Computed example of a mutant assay.
Amino acid sequence: MKWTAAKIKALKGQRKIAMVTAYDALTAALVDDAGIPTILVGDSLGMTVLGYETTLPVSMEEMLHHASAVARGTRNALVIADMPFMSYQPSVALALENAGRFLKEAHADAVKLEGGAMRGEMIEALVKNGIPVVGHIGLTPQSVKEMGGYRVQGKTPEQARQLMDDAMAVEQAGAFAIVLECVPAELGEMISNALTIPTIGIGAGAGCDGQVLVFTDLLGMSGKPAPRFVKKYATLHPLIAEALSAYRSDVEDGSFPSEEHTY
């Protein structure tokens, strides 16, 4: 069954929604085969696979390249493409153009963009033009310079009220789901209960309608400390390092290739 934005939206109150990031066809196929209904081609690829320090340098061409690969590796999951920094902020017209490219060129099913009430007009324009949208509020990595770092958001009553207003505005504008990142669990649950669209949490508590994790984080591939909200379902980094070291040794001492690996 191919997941659509409408089907994901209808899961609100019915079952929790799993989302995982993917950046290539192989990873996408693994996620898809596991029955996970939503795949996010996150601009987190800037740090996970491109070696940038933040998401800010990620370009449209890089995102289109990776989103296309993910779409080719996916049969059933809904593929959501992150709109990178400055691909939508300047104007509604630019947002329409670039979001359209994700659907037309990369064959993504939806786009995600950061920001709350200030994105209302933009989200409404995208949806009216047939482009499904996922919102993103709380810790918005593209605003890391303005926020002064990766910090929990919504800790004061004023901030909490603003995030609630932002969530309501994103829903009213027509988004079919919204990511809540790094907000107190109580606030995540309050926002989830107030909305009729699913909330996808990342560091926002169990009260959200779904959860998203970065593929390399949940599999423990990087070998670096993970954020508090990450649960590692495997620790692959030492296994990969051991395998590569063994391969190097076999090549150096001549034990690979052996007769069984030779034509």
Rank of each mutant, 00 (worst) to 15 (best):
I137H: 03
P57K: 12
L96R: 13
M86D: 00
A99Q: 11
A117E: 15
L96I: 05
L56S: 05
S68Q: 11
P141E: 03
A167C: 05
K112E: 05
V70P: 05
S68K: 14
K128S: 09
K112Q: 07
A71G: 05
M63H: 06
A117V: 05
A106Q: 08
T48L: 12
Y88V: 04
G148M: 02
M47R: 12
M164P: 01
G130A: 03
G130T: 04
S59V: 02
V58I: 08
E62I: 04
P132F: 04
R151L: 13
K155C: 11
S91K: 08
E114R: 09
V111G: 08
P141M: 10
Y52D: 13
F102A: 05
L94D: 01
S44Q: 00
Q153V: 06
G115V: 02
H107S: 15
L96T: 11
V49L: 14
R161V: 00
I137Y: 08
H65M: 03
M147A: 14
A71S: 15
V133W: 10
S143C: 12
T140N: 04
H107L: 12
K145C: 00
M118D: 12
N129T: 06
V58K: 12
E121N: 14
A69C: 07
P84E: 02
A77W: 06
G148I: 05
A117K: 15
D166M: 03
Y150C: 05
S44C: 02
K145Q: 15
A125I: 12
F102S: 07
G100S: 08
A93T: 09
R101W: 01
V111W: 12
P141A: 10
E124V: 01
G100Y: 04
E62Q: 15
